[in-house]
Amino acid sequence: MAAFGSDYRKWLLTLLLGFSSFAHAFDLQQLSAQLARPQVIHGDFIQEKHLRALPKPLTSTGTFVLARDHGLLWQLKTPLQQDYRITAQGIARRNGNEWQMLPGKSAGAEQNRLFLAVLQGDSSGLQRDFDLQLQGEAKDWKLTLTPRSLLLKQIFTRINIDGGELVQRIELQETQGDSTLLKMQNSVSNQPLSDAEQHDFAQ
């Protein structure tokens, strides 16, 4: 009987620990809060565009600045230099000393809006258009987005996002068989916006 009591206590403890770990499982709300925490993130990116018709991906590199209260500065360095600004108002391209707004209904525009929502941790915005499946923990997670809206179903089949404290990798699988892989590197969240960056967001 004593042995049975001991086994029962072990079973009960295991059960309680299992419930405890389940209750504290990493969820979308926690991920959103984690990604939205930094005021400003600076980093580098490598973007690979894999096209069915080409044997090697088209690769571009650059830097980015994500400001929680402003938006995203996307600064291409190679193979050409071009700056983009993505905000709630839309997407703009730098033209000399000015920013020129771009049409908002293209596939590229949808992709850039998606980048902004993902990097800012806007899970409520993503849930309007995607079914979200999250796996892992705060330091190592994977988020799979399956499109629900008709427009996005015409563009993407699936989007895979990996990260830890910040987003590290975004893979967009397109309906035509092409894909885009975006790797975020050297990201830091301890540097404020420079005067030039503040000016870019304010224009």
Rank of each mutant, 00 (worst) to 15 (best):
I41R: 13
G71P: 00
R93W: 04
P103N: 09
T63H: 09
V65P: 02
Q154R: 13
G125M: 06
Q176M: 12
W74T: 00
L134Q: 03
F115E: 00
L182S: 05
W141V: 02
L72S: 05
G136D: 02
L73M: 08
I155P: 04
S60D: 10
E110Q: 14
Q82L: 11
R148K: 15
T175A: 14
A67L: 04
L119A: 08
T144N: 11
V118K: 01
T61K: 02
R37P: 01
A92M: 09
G96Y: 09
A88M: 10
H50L: 09
W141L: 04
D200T: 07
S6P: 07
I159Y: 06
Q198V: 05
D69W: 00
F201R: 04
S124V: 11
D178A: 07
G90C: 08
I86K: 00
S189N: 14
L66Q: 06
L51C: 09
E110M: 12
Q135F: 09
D195M: 13
T63G: 06
V65M: 07
F201L: 05
E48R: 12
E98K: 14
L134F: 03
F26S: 01
A2N: 13
Q89I: 05
L193M: 08
S194W: 02
F130M: 02
E98D: 15
L143C: 05
S189E: 09
Q185F: 02
F64A: 01
G43P: 01
V167C: 04
S60C: 10
D44A: 10
Q154M: 10
L12N: 10
N160Y: 08
W74V: 00
L172E: 11
A53G: 11
A67Q: 07
L80T: 13
P103L: 09
L16G: 10
R52T: 13
E165H: 13
L193N: 11
W99G: 08
K10Y: 13
I159D: 06
Q127M: 11
A107V: 09
D7T: 12
L35S: 02
L66Y: 03
L143F: 04
W99A: 08
D131C: 06
D200G: 04
